[in-house]
Computed example of a mutant assay.
Amino acid sequence: MKIFNNKKDLRDCLLEHKSNKKTIGFVPTMGALHDGHLSLIEKASEKNDIVVVSIFVNPTQFDNVEDLKKYPKTIENDIKLLSAASCDILFSPKVEEIYSENITSEKFDFDGLEHQMEGKFRDGHFNGVGTVVKTLFKIVAPDKAYFGQKDFQQLQIIKKMVKKNHLNVKIKGCPIFREQDGLAMSSRNIRLSKEHREIAPFVYKTLKKVKKKFSHKSISEINKWLENQFKKQPLLTLEYFTIADEKALETAKTKEPNKKYRAFIAVFAGEIRLIDNIRLKH
């Protein structure tokens, strides 16, 4: 595995691969890697000749400075995991390599996707995501890029950004990777206290019950039921729960036969924020 910290050397290396007609699969990460990331790398390896992984904790997508400071950084362990995985190239730049001296976000119009769910609670978050992903795509110029569906809203926003900016990359959404007890894998999970880690799987268990109820209960009935479930759970604080159509991500009040729906949730376990979602059928 080759490791690059500056974009010029990385580009030179990738240009050589491209001149040999090699396809490039790209997995952008913020490090603190887990099996969910490794599953994306495996998918990229199956469909591409060369796999590039980036590790970059992007400052512009954090609306909370403390969250940025506390974001887990485990670069030595990450390198070990990547060396044992199907990763050919690691790009691990410093902040100034990506942003020069101007650490600000570009302003994007995602056709309203950015105002739903996460956008209501994390001001400027998706402008930061769009900025760094667009920058990384321009540096790596991958054929395909792989993202987990845990951040389903982010996935849809990146697809929209690629389309509106006419970027020549195919975006591949991959299934949520879970712990054995159902908790969606996240780099932030290692910051959970013992008691919060024990109760955290309640989030996914509740979503699975929502999926069962969706076939025969109204959306308003499900919303009330879920709020009551979390009122009984003192260690978890519900930030939001919404059932939305997958395309526009707009909150649904009634079920329409031609739309695909998904339930989205954000919960605080102490100071650690957990998000999850599940596909619904009706």
Rank of each mutant, 00 (worst) to 15 (best):
V140H: 10
D151V: 15
E118K: 05
K21D: 10
C87T: 14
I3C: 07
A84P: 01
K43S: 07
V267S: 09
L238M: 10
D78R: 07
E198H: 11
D67S: 02
V65A: 14
M30I: 04
F137E: 08
L249D: 01
K172W: 04
P72C: 01
F264Q: 08
K217W: 15
F152W: 09
K213D: 13
P93I: 00
S45D: 09
V57A: 00
N189V: 07
F177L: 14
I243T: 05
K159S: 12
T131S: 10
S186P: 00
D49N: 13
V53C: 12
V140K: 10
I176K: 12
F268I: 12
P175F: 07
A200N: 04
I190A: 07
T29G: 09
S215G: 05
T254C: 05
V51P: 05
L249R: 04
Y146S: 10
K253A: 12
K47L: 14
V203Y: 03
L238Q: 06
S105C: 11
T135H: 13
S100F: 14
K260E: 13
S54D: 08
I275H: 05
K138G: 11
K170F: 11
E101W: 07
H125K: 12
F241S: 08
L90T: 01
G130E: 11
D9Q: 15
D9P: 07
R262T: 06
A44G: 11
L113W: 02
T60V: 13
I219E: 12
V129Q: 05
R11Y: 02
P201Q: 03
Q233R: 14
V53H: 08
T23N: 11
K120A: 10
H216Q: 05
L68P: 05
G130Q: 09
F202M: 13
N102T: 14
K21F: 11
G119M: 08
L90H: 01
K43H: 04
F230R: 11
D78P: 10
I265K: 07
E101M: 10
I243H: 05
G36C: 04
L167W: 03
G173R: 06
I103P: 05
S100N: 15
Q156W: 02
F56Q: 04
I199V: 15
P28R: 04
K260D: 11
L236A: 13
G130Y: 12
K7V: 00
F230P: 00
K211G: 03
G173P: 09
S215E: 14
K7A: 13
I190V: 15
K170N: 14
F62W: 01
H17G: 00
K255L: 06
A269W: 12
I50E: 08
L192Q: 03
I171K: 06
K47D: 15
G119P: 01
A244W: 08
L192S: 03
K160H: 06
Q154V: 09
A141Q: 15
K160V: 01
L207D: 01
I75G: 00
S186D: 00
C174T: 03
K120C: 02
L90G: 01
N277Y: 07
D88G: 00
K217G: 00
K281S: 14
N223V: 02
K120L: 04
F121Q: 01
D49F: 04
H216A: 02
L192P: 02
K70E: 03
Q233K: 15
N165A: 02
E246S: 07
P72F: 02
K253Q: 15
K150Y: 04
E179K: 14
I79L: 05
L236E: 09
